[in-house]
C-alpha cells in the first residue's frame, strides 16, 4: 500500500469525523474508509487483492460456512464490543461445525453521523479478535444508511472453515440417550454483563462478557476425543434454550444437575435480583458438547487444560423422553423443567 500514489487528498479524520452517507456510496470516500481503516486493521493477502470475493485455497474436503449479523446494544460492553463479538460469534459458529475456521468476511451497515472514532475502536477490536483467533478477515462490504435508519453500526460476518479429513461433523442427530452433556465454563456471563450496563443496575464487582473465540478449545477437544456427537455455543437464550432446540429436534430429553452447572456468584446474584434464570442468559465464549459416556472424563480433562475451559463441567445426560423435556435436578431435591421460553426473559417487577 505504501508504494501507491496518494489517492486521498486529506487523511480520514478518525478523531473527530463522523460516518457520512458518502461513506457507503461506493465512491472514493468509501474507498478511503476501506484503505485507511479496514485494510490496515484486517490486513490479509486476500483483502490486499481487492477482489469482490476471496479465493481460498482448500484441499479436498468439506467446508463449513456460517453467517451471523450483530446488532447488539450497547455497542461497547464490559469485556467486549460489537466488533469482537462479530468475530467471536462467527468463528464459534464455524468451530461448532467441527471445522477449523479459515477466513471471515465482514459487512458493515453504518448509520450516517456515527463517530469514526467509535468505528475505529470497533474495527481495532475486530482486528485484534481475528488475530487472536488466527482467522483472517478476507473480504468485506460497507453500506451507510440515513441517520435514524440504523443503530450506529450493524455488522455481519460470514465464516468459512474446513472439516479436517477423517473428522465426522458433530450434529444434533448424533445425540442419543446415555450421552453425556458438558459445558466449557460458567453460564450466563455475557447476557448478565449486557444487562448490567443498564444505568439502573450497578453491581459491586464488574462482570465481564465471556466473548471469546473457541476454535482452539475445540481443536484441543478433538485431539483428546476424536468423536464429539454435538457441539453448540449456547448464545441467545442460553444453555436452556440451546438444549431445548436439540431435544425437540432429535426427540430425546436432557437431565441436568443444578449443583454441577457452573455459574459465577455475581451472575447468580444479579439473576436472583432481577428474577431471571442464568441458564437462559446468553453466552458468547462458552460451548456445550455432547459425547459418548465413555469419552466424557477424558474430554473434561482436556477442556480444563485450556484457559477457556478451566471451569468446564459434566452437567447432565441425554435421556429418553417422548416429551423432549430439559429437566434439572435441583439442589433442593426434586426436578423442574427448563421450559422452551416463548421469547426472551423479561425482568420482573417484584
Amino acid at each position: 500500500m505504501s508504494t501507491r500514489a496518494k489517492t486521498f487528498f486529506r487523511k480520514l479524520d478518525l478523531a473527530n469525523g463522523v460516518v457520512e452517507a458518502t461513506h457507503g456510496t461506493g465512491g472514493k470516500v468509501m474507498a478511503q474508509l476501506v484503505e485507511e481503516l479496514f485494510l490496515p486493521a484486517f490486513d490479509s493477502k486476500e483483502l490486499r487483492a481487492r477482489n469482490d470475493g476471496a479465493l481460498l485455497e482448500v484441499g479436498a474436503g468439506q467446508l463449513v460456512v456460517s453467517t451471523d449479523s450483530y446488532v447488539v446494544s450497547p455497542l461497547f460492553f464490559p469485556g467486549g464490543d460489537i466488533g469482537s463479538l462479530a468475530v467471536h460469534g462467527t468463528v464459534n459458529d464455524v468451530a461448532m461445525g467441527g471445522a477449523r475456521p479459515l477466513a471471515l468476511t465482514v459487512g458493515f451497515i453504518l448509520e450516517e453521523g456515527f463517530p469514526l472514532k467509535d468505528l475505529a475502536r470497533i474495527v481495532a477490536s475486530m482486528a485484534a479478535a481475528a488475530k487472536a483467533a488466527g482467522v483472517p478477515i478476507v473480504t468485506g462490504d460497507t453500506k451507510v444508511v440515513e441517520r435514524g435508519k440504523g443503530d450506529g453500526v450493524f455488522i455481519n460476518t460470514t465464516g468459512v472453515g474446513m472439516l479436517p479429513a477423517g473428522r465426522v461433523a458433530p450434529s444434533a442427530e448424533r445425540m442419543r440417550p446415555g450421552d453425556v452433556v458438558l459445558v466449557s465454563g460458567t453460564m450466563g456471563d455475557h447476557g448478565v454483563s449486557i444487562l448490567s450496563t443498564r444505568e439502573s443496575l450497578s453491581f459491586e464487582s464488574e462482570l465481564l462478557s465471556d466473548s471469546a473465540a473457541l476454535n482452539s478449545l475445540v481443536e484441543l477437544m478433538y485431539r483428546a476425543v476424536p468423536d464429539l456427537h454435538v457441539l453448540r455455543d449456547p448464545t441467545r437464550g442460553g444453555l436452556a434454550t440451546t438444549l431445548n432446540e436439540l431435544t425437540h429436534h432429535v426427540g430425546v430429553g436432557v437431565r441436568l444437575r443444578e449443583k454441577d452447572v457452573p455459574v459465577k456468584p455475581q451472575v447468580h446474584a444479579a439473576c436472583e435480583l432481577l428474577g431471571l434464570d442464568p441458564l437462559y442468559a446468553a453466552n458468547e465464549g462458552k460451548l456445550l458438547v455432547v459425547c459418548a459416556p465413555g469419552d466424557a472424563k477424558k474430554l473434561l480433562e482436556a477442556m480444563k487444560e485450556h484457559p477457556l475451559g478451566r471451569d468446564a463441567a459434566i452437567v447432565g445426560e441425554v435421556v429418553e423422553d417422548p416429551e423432549c423435556f430439559v429437566q434439572i435436578d435441583t439442589t433442593f431435591g426434586g426436578a423442574r423443567i427448563l421450559d422452551w421460553l416463548a421469547g426472551e426473559q423479561l425482568p420482573r417487577i417484584c
Binding site: 460458567t186 443444578e258 449443583k259 454441577d260 452447572v261 457452573p262 455459574v263 459465577k264 456468584p265 447468580h268 446474584a269 436472583e272 442464568p278 471451569d311 435441583t330 439442589t331 433442593f332 431435591g333
Partner: peptide
C-alpha cells in the same frame, strides 16, 4: 467460581 447454588443468605434457605 461457584456452582449454581452458592450464594450466602440464599443457600441456607434452599436446604433440601
Amino acid at each position: 467460581m461457584s456452582q449454581l447454588a452458592g450464594l450466602p443468605l440464599i443457600d441456607e434457605f434452599r436446604d433440601g
